[in-house]
């Protein structure tokens, strides 16, 4: 592993709902190293996107409270004034959004939109900017870059637009890329192309990448390390191979069991009991996953669940993983062998 580029410590992101603040990201600590892809995986509402936006302060500060530390390039981004933060955004960080149909300004050409971060962060002549932009377009796999440079977003297909969004993120050679569900809105074959492109680019640029996704397939293809998130907390962190071979937390195991392509055809899929609690109704005391594995005896959970390093670089929250197994009669589960 290279040097750390980003160290998140006890990050808590709370949103104001009817006057009260509720934490959507609740004490997350995570480190991203150079040349490393860290995937944050979880279902909708778990706080993974809120986490991504918190890193570079993209929340509306009137309704959001940020606590903890986001240490990046020797400064805590959470305490930076907006003018200083703007020197970091787009320069040292790049962001890739989910939906390329909406992530681009419909009234500006692709070329202009890729050059825009250079306007603020790099001192370049307009000819140099154009050259750099054309070069970026080629690097993200756009072959007729001269033509695309002058085109508007609506003239491009979804896959091409997502390539343009990636080019924007890479415009100033950032050391940290944050990709929020970069392939979710795309068709299967386009998704595969974008995954391959991002892997290829990662080999070139060697920056740290945070990959936010709900798709364990994308995780298996791209990530070096994985953090599983549930109800605002990270519940398991491990290297990708370790996580797929030896998942420990009951939530991780449940998720892996509910994916059809992971299971035999027509087999019954695992269903997690109950529903994801909303951030207002979340019981923040004890193991947050406990209500959804009701058969696990209470004493198996920790009263104040902590992250435990069970193996080097493999962390699990709470002690309930130790004796965890799916109840009998609930057919179809692959009962992963626990160490």
């Amino acid at each position: 592993m290279g040097n750390p580029v980003l160290e998140i410590e006890e990050l808590r992101t709370s949103f104001s709902i009817k006057g009260d603040y509720h934490a959507a990201v609740d004490g997350v600590s995570l480190t991203v190293h150079e040349n490393e892809v860290v995937a944050i995986v979880g279902e909708s509402g778990c706080g993974k996107s809120a986490l991504a936006l918190s890193i570079i302060g993209l929340h509306d500060l009137k309704t959001t409270k940020l606590e903890g530390q986001v240490n990046f390039k020797g400064q805590n981004l959470l305490s930076l004034p907006i003018s200083k933060l703007n020197k970091v955004r787009g320069r040292d960080t790049g962001m890739i959004f989910q939906d390329p149909m909406t992530a681009l300004n419909p009234l500006a050409t692709i070329g202009r939109q890729i050059e825009e971060p250079m306007d603020y962060h790099l001192k370049l002549s307009s000819a140099a900017k154009k050259k750099r932009t054309l070069d970026l377009l080629r690097r993200v796999g756009i072959k007729n870059e001269q033509r695309v440079y002058g085109q508007y977003p609506h003239e491009l297909s979804g896959g091409m637009r997502q390539r343009a969004v990636i080019a924007i993120a890479l415009a100033c050679d950032p050391v940290l890329l944050i990709a929020d569900e970069p392939t979710t809105a795309l068709d299967v074959t386009i998704q595969a192309q974008i995954i391959d492109l991002m892997k290829e680019l990662q080999n070139q640029i060697k920056s740290g990448i945070i990959l936010i996704t709900h798709d364990l397939g994308v995780v298996a293809e791209m990530a070096d390390r994985v953090a599983v998130m549930y109800a605002g907390e990270l519940v398991e962190i491990a290297e990708v191979r370790e996580l797929f071979v030896n998942p420990l937390h009951p939530y991780t195991r449940s998720l892996l069991n509910s994916i059809p392509s992971n299971m035999e055809a027509k087999a019954k899929l695992h269903v997690i009991e109950g529903i994801v609690p909303s951030i207002q109704n979340l019981d923040r005391i004890g193991c947050r996953f406990a209500p959804r594995v009701a058969w696990v005896p209470e004493e198996d959970h920790e009263t104040n669940p902590q992250m435990h390093e069970v193996k080097p670089n493999h962390f699990v929250r709470c002690t309930c993983y130790k004796n965890f197994h799916f109840p009998e009669g609930r057919v179809g589960e692959k009962d992963y062998v626990t160490s």
Partner: peptide, 29 residues
């Protein structure tokens, strides 16, 4: 609240320019 405004902020575009270059252009149309 549009995504492309988020993209602009993520680029480090100052707030005033986010309005003049991105939001107002679209809204005045």
């Amino acid at each position: 609240l549009k995504d492309f405004v988020k993209t602009a902020r993520a680029k480090g575009v100052p707030e005033r320019k986010v309005y003049t270059k991105h939001i107002l252009r679209n809204s005045l149309l």
